[in-house]
């Protein structure tokens, strides 16, 4: 697993992928933060995080589209699949590498908050000043949602050798998961509402965004990511089953 992880990390920085991902994610997060706080004259970051949730749709597929599609196209997957390693360690190595990249970009973008804090405190726009607990909760939730999205993107990537198709399908699935809660108010059946609410990635985000630690949501996000990692392993194992 470690060998795969190291190679993936290396390849993010020796090809353009890692730089393109970091550039786009930092540009988007910087712009959105500036737009929603500094320009609006507030240190309330809730709008910023709500928007960032959708921004993940745009920049996470950059990270995941190549994970397996590229290996399939260049036939290097034959090396990995005939090497004496478990398929699960191959999949996990790649997953953690992509997740690490995402963490790096989020860590770098959080430097922006210092600017917001500085002006917020000095100008005393809000009576209480920026809420650290809310900020941490939001960041943590964003990382969890990103983790789920990476697992889904990786799964889609294992199904096709066409990177463009991988991006498109990933965005559609993620969009569905994000918006499924939004249609809830239009539905009268309680049962359907409950199912849609359960599926919704967005509804679990709420507690975190108020600065509360929601253990149920944490387990939910980890489970969903786990399911897609498992499905990815199955995609490769299915070919090996008689």
């Amino acid at each position: 697993m470690l060998a795969i992880y190291r190679r993936e990390m290396r390849s993010y920085f020796t090809t353009s992928t890692g730089y393109v991902f970091l550039a786009i994610s930092l540009a988007l997060s910087g712009f959105m933060l500036g737009f929603t706080t500094l320009l609006m004259g507030t240190s309330d970051t809730s709008t910023y995080f709500a928007i960032m949730l959708f921004m993940l749709l745009i920049f996470l597929p950059i990270l995941t589209m190549k994970i397996f599609s590229e290996e399939k196209r260049t036939k290097t997957e034959q090396l990995l699949l005939t090497a004496p390693i478990r398929i699960s360690s191959m999949v996990l190595g790649k997953f953690f590498a992509a997740f690490t990249m995402f963490i790096i970009s989020m860590a770098a973008s959080s430097l922006n908050f210092f600017i917001v804090f500085r002006y917020a405190v000095n100008d005393n726009i809000t009576s209480s000043g920026p809420n650290i607990a809310m900020l941490m909760g939001n960041m943590f939730a964003l990382l969890l949602v990103g983790m789920v999205f990476i697992a889904i993107g990786m799964f889609v990537s294992s199904l096709t050798e066409n990177q463009f198709a991988a991006v498109l399908i990933t965005i559609l699935i993620l969009l569905f998961l994000l918006l499924v809660g939004a249609f809830n108010s239009l539905i009268t059946s309680n049962a359907v509402r409950a199912v849609l609410d359960w599926l919704s990635i967005y509804s679990r985000f709420k507690n975190f965004s108020y600065g509360m630690f929601d253990i149920g949501a944490l387990i939910y996000y980890i489970s969903v990511a786990g399911v897609f990692i498992f499905l990815t392993v199955r995609v490769f194992e299915a070919r090996r089953v008689k």
Partner: peptide
């Protein structure tokens, strides 16, 4: 799989690595 070395029809090379880096990755793998 440990007992078998395999060269597929199309060599499974990561073209963004140097020869040494690649072989050392295979060694770790």
């Amino acid at each position: 799989k440990k007992k078998i070395g395999f060269l597929p029809e199309q060599p499974p090379l990561y073209i963004d690595m140097t020869v040494w880096e690649y072989l050392s990755f295979v060694f770790d793998l």
